[in-house]
């Protein structure tokens, strides 16, 4: 089970590799051996320098996908390299919408299992051991692959810090996907960008999240207003996403985003294990909940036992008065 060579999926948005990919490249570097990247899109060459700066020596460029969702063609390109004997010992995927798709497709093509929700990776006995936060992050489970073949890991955002190595621009090698037939028939017809005024949820310095304790959908404006006043991003617990109050993109937790802001304000959130995994590594946590036994208070640096319908409007008024 050699890990002499690790590949990382380098997802590119707005002309730059995403932070999670850079985090994984940094982690791969520390695990020893060569680090190479897999990228796709119409201008992969433009990120060769950015990827090289983090230690990538070679970029395997699947090229423009002509509207296809990345899952099938990118997995097919990687599988072709593995079958030709040029594959890596391990492949790290960011836990993104596309990263998960590609990992799943690749798993079947190579008949290798996948370990997902990875939050740390270490080397042991010549192989890799992955760590997984379970039961709301109260326990850490370690796992590894048995048997031969590339080890496929899907890693959560913010599991590692991204640090440049000062390397030269990576060499770009064309790695077009072989024909994948009917399985590649899903095509993107149009892309829609939703307006966002503040910072991105997973990059914000302050995150204000609301939960079921808000009582009903209309009360979520309190969360949005407070987030705006604190120049932060609004988030949500799974309960109110499931209830259809806010879109899935707002969800913080196991099923949603991992956030590590300077301050996380949990408003009317009880602190189900599902939610805790996504926010318990925030630098500071403030919780407002009327139930003094709510689990969220066990991780809060400041806990206010009170009614969000009273505390939030007072907080909003006081902040407005300051500005």
């Amino acid at each position: 089970m050699s890990v002499d060579k690790i590949w990382v999926l380098a997802e590119v948005t707005d002309g730059a590799p995403i932070t999670t990919s850079l985090e994984l490249i940094t982690a791969a570097r520390s695990l020893g051996g060569t680090v190479e990247a897999v990228a796709y899109g119409d201008d992969t060459a433009s990120v060769a320098a950015a990827l090289g700066a983090y230690g990538v020596t070679t970029v395997h460029d699947v090229g423009d996908l002509a509207g296809s969702l990345p899952g099938v063609p990118v997995a097919a390109s990687i599988a072709a390299a593995v079958e030709a004997g040029n594959g890596p010992g391990a492949i790290l995927f960011p836990a993104t919408y596309d990263g998960r798709d590609i990992a799943g497709r690749l798993s079947v093509k190579l008949d290798r299992p996948v370990l997902t929700n990875v939050v740390d990776l270490t080397e042991a006995d010549g192989g890799l051991v992955s760590q997984h936060a379970i039961f709301g992050g109260t326990q850490v489970l370690s796992a590894r692959f048995t048997g031969e073949g590339p080890q496929i890991f899907v890693v959560r955002a913010k599991s590692f810090a991204a640090e440049p190595s000062g390397g030269a621009a990576a060499e770009v090698v064309a790695a077009p996907a072989p024909d994948t037939g009917a399985s590649n028939a899903a095509k993107i017809v149009s892309r829609h960008v939703e307006e966002r005024t503040g910072p991105k949820l997973d990059e914000a310095d302050v995150v204000v999240s609301g939960g079921r304790g808000l009582g009903d959908k209309d009360q979520y404006v309190l969360i949005e207003e407070l987030a705006t006043l604190l120049k932060g991003a609004p988030g949500a617990s799974r309960a109110i996403v499931d209830a259809g109050w806010v879109p899935y993109s707002h969800q913080v937790g196991q099923t949603g985003k991992t956030v590590k802001p300077t301050v996380y304000l949990a408003c009317g959130i009880s602190g189900a294990t599902q939610h805790m995994v996504g926010m318990k590594n925030s630098k500071n946590i403030v919780a407002i909940n009327k139930d003094q036994d709510a689990p969220i208070f066990s991780v809060a640096d400041l806990g206010i036992v009170g009614d969000v319908h009273k505390v939030l409007p007072q907080l909003i008024e006081a902040l407005k008065a300051r500005s």
């Binding site: 806990g303 036992v305 009170g306």
Partner: peptide
């Protein structure tokens, strides 16, 4: 399977 580093609880204030 190991216990994760526990986060210590902070100040709790009743509103």
């Amino acid at each position: 399977v190991a216990e994760a580093e526990a986060r210590s609880a902070g100040e709790i204030v009743t509103d």
